[in-house]
Simulated scan of single mutants.
Amino acid sequence: MSGEVKRSYSSPLREQAAASTRLLVRDAGHRLFARDGFVATSIKKIAHEAGVSERTVYTHYRNKVELFQDALNVAIAGDELPVAMRDRPSFEELLRMSSARELIDEAVAANAVILERAGALIMAGIESSGADADMRRISDEGEHAMRANCLALATALIGTGEVRPEYGAERVADVLTTMLSPHVFQLMGWSSSRYQGWLADALRATLLMP
């Protein structure tokens, strides 16, 4: 009796096509979530925007929340690596800077890049968090991560010896969390360069000794 062993078949071309389709779907979702909000964006609309069937969307994402979370994660990070911003080498390098003024400049520049990519999605999540429990969870997780990152930046700033003596780490983190938020970025509606220049000046004037 011959025992025929079934072998799994993996085609690089098939995997590449699947990855390309997933990217189409994610990008379509990003555009619609940012433009219309989470609640008003349906899987049907995302499929139409991506030029695929609804079934194809569900092949890559179990539901709309999972698609939003993936789009948000990639927009914030700028890539698909499952590594939190706090654990990335670029953030660690930022925390090691010895000049408070340079640290503020680099933090503001990095934050502007993130908000250009993800600001509208973050706001879409916040705006729908009152009507959807999953979006509340995602928004809360984002706020907690932002606070933790700002507290790390605050500690690094104080370590330079240039922060006003009356400002402790929590107070510095309060200022950073507020000023670096997507709310401020959207309310200003300025170009990235104008936003960065104003924000860096404001943080230096507020936090650092003359």
Rank of each mutant, 00 (worst) to 15 (best):
N111S: 10
E66S: 06
A47C: 04
F68P: 01
L207S: 06
L208R: 03
E127M: 12
R7W: 06
Q16G: 12
L203E: 01
M97V: 08
L94N: 06
V184L: 15
M179P: 03
E116V: 13
A202G: 03
P12T: 08
L94H: 03
E15K: 11
L13E: 12
S128Y: 12
V83N: 06
L207N: 04
G29S: 09
E49Q: 14
E127C: 13
A202D: 07
R101F: 03
A112R: 01
L103E: 01
A152E: 11
E116S: 12
A47S: 08
E143A: 14
E102K: 07
L176F: 01
N63F: 08
L153D: 02
L81Q: 08
S11R: 11
H48L: 14
G78V: 07
K45V: 08
A84F: 13
L95K: 04
D134A: 12
L187G: 15
R137W: 08
S99H: 05
V52S: 02
I46D: 00
I122E: 03
A156K: 03
H48F: 09
V175E: 06
A131N: 13
T155L: 13
R22H: 00
A145I: 06
E162I: 09
K6C: 15
E66C: 02
E15G: 05
I122P: 00
A154H: 02
F38K: 00
E143Y: 14
E80Y: 04
E102D: 13
D105C: 08
A107M: 06
D174N: 14
V39L: 11
L208T: 03
Q196H: 07
T59F: 04
A34D: 03
A120S: 07
E49A: 15
M209C: 15
Y61M: 00
W198N: 09
S11T: 11
H30A: 10
L32F: 03
